[in-house]
Amino acid sequence: MTTASGEDRRALVVEDDEDIRELITFTLSTQGFDVTAVDSGLAGVEAVRALDPDLITLDLGLPGIDGIEACRRIRELTDAYVVMITARDDEVERLIGLETGADDFISKPFSPRELKARVNAMFRRPRRGPATVAAVAAPVAAGDEHEVLNHGDLSVDVDGRRAFQNGTELSLTRTEFDLLTELMRTPARVWSREALLRSVWDTEWATDTHLVEVHIGNLRRKLGETPGSARLIRTVRGVGYRMESSG
């Protein structure tokens, strides 16, 4: 798999089980990735510093620092796609993993076909590059070439993949940005969780609506919402979500 400029995409596999590590490495290699594999969380963080990968698969139950802590540290270094891989049935731990910035999770055992499908779906979504000085500039004006969405005190530069609230840029993950964009494009629409899964994750394998619930919760916190406060993203009980009226 190559970038638009023709460069090979790099993948980092962080997995302490040798058999699974080799399976993931082989699967991603057949997808055209230049794959590096390590067996601990600390080694994974160091590999991110050295390699700047485009994709990271991260086991939850790693020796030393676990996958949750490794993901927190990795998110400080890169906006690469992160897939958390877990053998645990504890749903809370999966959700905590997503709160650290993981884009998706896969439960063991999984098939190479499932991994390929999820990875291919993620790479159909734009990747926001590393922050630059220009990235903290003022929001683009509505008359600029970029598609700009406005809703109350929110402004989203769709093409530049930047979101602002009261003129201050929000630090959103790729998934949070995509969710906010979908909701703002059709503010009167009530989006079901399943519809958001299909639109944002763009994959037949994304069948767990907890993915939506966790990322919506993270997005709400970054928008300054707290329990009991007025909300920009309204929960429509039994259905899904919509943007609150900006009037």
Rank of each mutant, 00 (worst) to 15 (best):
4 A>I: 09
5 S>D: 15
12 L>Q: 04
16 D>Y: 02
16 D>M: 02
16 D>R: 00
16 D>C: 02
19 D>E: 12
19 D>C: 02
21 R>L: 07
28 L>K: 01
34 D>P: 00
36 T>K: 10
37 A>F: 01
38 V>P: 01
38 V>K: 00
41 G>R: 04
44 G>S: 08
46 E>M: 13
47 A>V: 04
49 R>N: 14
49 R>W: 00
51 L>A: 11
55 L>N: 07
56 I>P: 03
58 L>T: 06
59 D>W: 01
62 L>T: 10
64 G>W: 07
69 E>A: 12
69 E>P: 03
73 R>I: 06
75 R>T: 14
75 R>D: 09
81 Y>W: 15
82 V>A: 10
83 V>E: 00
84 M>G: 03
90 D>Q: 13
91 E>Q: 13
92 V>Y: 11
94 R>Y: 00
96 I>F: 04
99 E>V: 01
109 P>Y: 01
112 P>R: 03
113 R>W: 06
119 V>N: 03
122 M>S: 08
127 R>E: 10
127 R>W: 03
135 A>P: 00
136 V>S: 12
136 V>W: 06
137 A>F: 07
140 V>G: 11
143 G>M: 06
145 E>K: 13
146 H>R: 14
153 D>Q: 11
154 L>R: 03
155 S>K: 12
155 S>L: 13
156 V>H: 01
159 D>Q: 07
159 D>T: 13
161 R>T: 12
165 Q>A: 13
166 N>H: 14
167 G>M: 07
172 L>H: 09
173 T>L: 06
178 D>C: 08
182 E>D: 09
194 E>K: 15
195 A>K: 11
196 L>P: 05
197 L>G: 04
198 R>V: 10
199 S>Y: 03
203 T>P: 02
211 L>A: 04
216 I>A: 08
216 I>K: 00
221 R>S: 11
223 L>Q: 00
225 E>Q: 11
225 E>H: 06
226 T>G: 03
227 P>L: 05
230 A>E: 13
235 T>F: 07
235 T>N: 14
236 V>D: 05
242 R>C: 13
243 M>Y: 04
247 G>M: 10
